[in-house]
Amino acid sequence: MSVLSFERIVRYFRHGHNVLDGVDFEVDAGEVIGLLGRNGAGKTTLIQIALGVLHPQGGAASVFGINPATDPMAVKLQVGYVSEDQILPEFLEVNEVLALHRGLFPDWDVELEKDLLSRFNIRAGAKIKELSKGEARQVALLCAVAHRPKLLLLDEPAGGLDPAVRREFLETSIQLLNDAGTTILFSSHHMTDVERMAGRIVMLHSGKVLVDDALDNLQERFSMVLLPLDGGMTEERARSLPGCIAVRRRNGSIHAILRMSREEGLQAARKAIGVENIRCETIPLEEMFIELLGGQP
């Protein structure tokens, strides 16, 4: 049974255009989904719909079989949520924030709380407003995971954090994955984090799911051919390569993104162009993101 499903989610934005225009995908238990998209692509909106904070104007979301729009309480109790611009009550002490969450979540695991608190090395008596950005986010993570949720919704959880805190964040999530097979849906602009964590990538673009595939498949199915400019190579010729989805000119060569693996790409390019000195490389997710979403309006 899917832990989380979105069925033709439609959500209009204030200014009239659709943020989400029929988003459709399911998440199975134990999956780690990297939700990618440019700023304003609707990642936050989608996550908040799953949390029941925003209501879809068309379609329905389902979390553990519960519709978050009709029973947000039940969803919130079973889900952990961290977001970049989440505000912890800054007038409270860490202690008090923990007491608040302990009371709100009946399944709160005191052992895990203690464990994480000592790992993050946060003073329990400190006021939230005295904490650094990284520490505050760690408290937020603690609050999101200490009730051992079966689903974690992370909205740009590492946004604005230094690499050390980001890694700590990653490791805590991995620990949860190991311990309980938690399902995770997270959005991030740190592509290396996504490459480490995600099993599957969902890319949103202009309100729709543009890509929904296993990360490994994505990486194995796309490649970039570097074509030297000499020998009359033009962008048009590059574009006519089989499976070519994007072409870019870069100092001295033309880069063509092909929808095929590295070996296939190399052979196809050699065959099509008849030039031998062609290189074909795998594409980091970051490049793929830029190639797939960067050029589009």
């Binding site: 890694r167 480490r196 099993g199």
Partner: peptide, 18 residues
Amino acid sequence: STRLLSTELGVNPMTISK
């Protein structure tokens, strides 16, 4: 173990398993 390696490398345990 999958668990140990995934924590050490900071990657998804499913990946190690795969």
